[in-house]
Simulated assay, not measured.
Amino acid sequence: MEKIKPKNISAGRLMSRRCLYVGSRNFLLPPNGDFQEVESGKTGWAPIMIIGRESYFETVKDFPMNNAGEVRAAVSMDLVAHCPFAASMVLVKKIASREGGSTFNLWFLKPQITEQIEAVSPWFIIPETALPACLPAAAEILYRFPRAGDDGRLLLRVNGRGESRSLRLPAAADCDNFNRSLGTHPDAASKTFTNFPDYLAFLHATLAGCRLPQLLPFFNRGFLTSEKVKKPLLRCTAAAVFIFCLYLGLAFFIPFSAEKGLKRENQALNSKLSGLLLQRRQLDSLHHRQQQLADTVNNYTSKIALFQLLARSLPPRTVIRQLNMSGNTVEISGLSPQASQLLSSLSQKPEVSEARFSSPLREDRQSGREKFALMFRFSRKVK
């Protein structure tokens, strides 16, 4: 494989790190400037393909529309009126707007280049005469480029609007007719390349300086439909669909499995805790009954304490004939020489409250003592 070593150039943009020049001879343009000639069918993949002037027809025309897509559709419907051969692909770039329409650069690719485009499947297909038009220029420039494999040369005129017109001529041909036919200004700047490697370096450097909007008119619309890209794309799509379905499956299965596991654990815990909960309820019931019994016992009035109280409080010669107790209410009746003294004595005791006679006092004829009946509340409890 023959190698041509031009001057070193900078790496440039990412997409220019590997581009392919396809003309009468094919060259790989790496960023290190070590351009390699490659055989057709062995070029490999490259994101950018630069098409040699031999493989397309170039023209500039005015159209009554401003959209490049509409121009492409209109030209494709009537190729015979715009191109001298049956073009396999049309590239359209808007040059300038005017009243009632716009000016467009058109490149018609020959059918022979289609197979190489499908084999490489590049992202961008750029005619070589379109690249110098991407350079900023205030006035027109005339380029003279050498050709690879013959003694001819390529003449290219780029005006200040970015419009490009080109012509292939033999090396000994006079370019004055070309300049006169295009109306090139006699004082227009010119740039001449004497050898082909320098020209390739110029193309690569120009490509490296291009911004993405400048390359969009040359986007390969058949990139996704080429056989070289279709299979990997289908595989990637299938892998993405599989991963998405797997994600959905896991997103559904993991919570469902976790929920079932929690239910099983809950059932196991419930079966183990049911006995403990039953015992807890039984203990609560027994505690409640114990509390009720304790309250009953605590509220029970001690009769012994009541008898002791009466023994201390009764005046001499006092006789109790009847004693009734209901809860803490005590009713007594009997005979006493001084029943009022008995009531007063009971009322002074801290255990007694609400002491009063329940019936009027009467005199007993046999004993001469007073018959009494009184009631009070006795609050002393059993400890």
Rank of each mutant, 00 (worst) to 15 (best):
G334N: 07
P136C: 00
A173F: 01
L246N: 11
T184F: 02
E58R: 14
L314Y: 07
S285E: 10
I126A: 10
R25V: 01
R312V: 05
P31M: 03
G69H: 13
C210Q: 04
E331W: 11
L167N: 06
V120R: 02
F376R: 05
D176I: 07
R72D: 07
A258K: 13
G327S: 07
R289F: 04
L106S: 04
L156H: 00
G44C: 01
F178R: 06
A294P: 03
G23Y: 04
G149P: 02
G23P: 05
A311R: 14
T296C: 04
R365D: 14
Y199T: 02
R317I: 07
L335I: 15
L212C: 01
G52T: 11
P122C: 08
A46S: 05
V319Q: 14
N67T: 12
R235W: 06
K260S: 09
R235P: 00
R17W: 09
E37M: 11
Q338W: 06
R356H: 10
V158W: 03
L346D: 01
S336H: 08
E331L: 15
S257G: 08
F27Y: 14
N298Q: 10
F372H: 08
V352P: 00
Q348I: 06
I51K: 07
I126C: 04
L262K: 10
R98N: 08
C134I: 09
S353A: 09
T103R: 13
P350G: 10
R380G: 00
L234C: 11
S336T: 14
A294N: 13
F124Y: 12
R13M: 08
K230A: 13
A268V: 06
I126N: 01
R235M: 11
I243W: 03
A74W: 13
K61F: 08
L131I: 00
Q282L: 14
R168N: 07
G222R: 09
T318D: 02
V90H: 00
R98H: 09
I141S: 01
L156N: 01
R380A: 08
F256A: 07
I51A: 13
V352W: 05
G183R: 10
P127C: 05
R165Y: 02
L286Q: 14
A46Q: 05
T329M: 12
E128P: 02
L14T: 15
M1L: 14
R13S: 15
K228C: 05
D151F: 12
A373R: 06
T206E: 08
E37F: 09
A87N: 11
K5S: 10
F378H: 06
D78V: 03
E227A: 15
G41W: 08
V38C: 09
R165L: 11
T103G: 04
G334P: 10
E115T: 07
